[in-house]
Design a protein around this nucleic acid. Sequence first.
DNA 1: TTATTAAAAGACAAAAAGGTCTTTTAATAT
DNA 2: ATATTAAAAGACCTTTTTGTCTTTTAATAA
Lengths: 152, 152
Amino acid sequence: MFKKETEYALRGMVYIQIQNLKDRRPGVAEIAHEIEAPFFYTAKIFQRLAKQGFVRSLKGKGGGFFLDPEKKDLPLKEIIIAIEGNELFIGCGFGLKNCDENNPCPLHQQYGLIRDEINRLVSGETIQSLALSSMTKNVSLGFSRENSEKKS
Amino acid sequence: MFKKETEYALRGMVYIQIQNLKDRRPGVAEIAHEIEAPFFYTAKIFQRLAKQGFVRSLKGKGGGFFLDPEKKDLPLKEIIIAIEGNELFIGCGFGLKNCDENNPCPLHQQYGLIRDEINRLVSGETIQSLALSSMTKNVSLGFSRENSEKKS
DNA sequence: TTATTAAAAGACAAAAAGGTCTTTTAATAT
DNA sequence: ATATTAAAAGACCTTTTTGTCTTTTAATAA
Ligand code: FES
Ligand code: FES
């Protein structure tokens, strides 16, 4: 569905926000480890997100990443579009140059419903909303879910 | 959503089947033109599809592609999986190694619904079903829809 | 002010996807 | 038989995606 870069970005941002809510500022090493992404690739991705203003960062000791309080309630859709464009949200499921009601592909009606659902999902959720539900529910951002180690 | 190769394959197969229903066997040049795909790339894609048994072909004069009558009612899903694997149909929307009810990502429930919809669509439609609805309805496989030139 | 820490910048490289082209093989028509 | 047609095979290339690594900049701590 999404590009790997998008997946890493979303998982990482949710992780950052969860930590921010605990008054922590994770660095690249910690983020990459937690979301099971390659260190250097994660670094590059968050560097870009910082430049685009989706996350903020501090250098040096005690530094790391955190979300601008004004950005944590942005719909996921905005982040996704910034990374991979909006083809998924407006494009034709059959690959026609543009999805056009007046020149529909054979999947137009049915695919339209799916695309609407996708749009609803990414418009309705935010990094903050996912971070909060991740903390209450038993939810995972990588292989090792440490949200709920106290299971035994 | 799908890879370009998948899109070309599906559009091309629907076109082939429409022509087959008119007792024609289109060649690569015609297919590529009709679905607006690069000639050589289309050739390669249909070569693969032929080797995998999804389409059949005849060389030489009057040659071209046609669907095995037994294959034309295969769900799109089988063709798609043969081309790009089944990640889209079983994978996690957040990019976790596997979508696991017992280790869900923050999008698990909501993405699950979308994934189910996608599965329903590609399991319920076939090349034949799309070819038939393409002929009755006013439907397009490329830019120039010649299904309905007699509009004036 | 110097050492240490951690992100920013940017070059580099491997892999996958997308695309092009030439040569060979197999049909048909003359 | 041979000329023609069209797919099969396969080499090759380009772009995008994914990933790696080194050097530089900025912050803090001692
Ligand atoms: S034209 Fe294909 S989805 Fe609308
Ligand atoms: S775990 Fe992510 S969709 Fe199921």
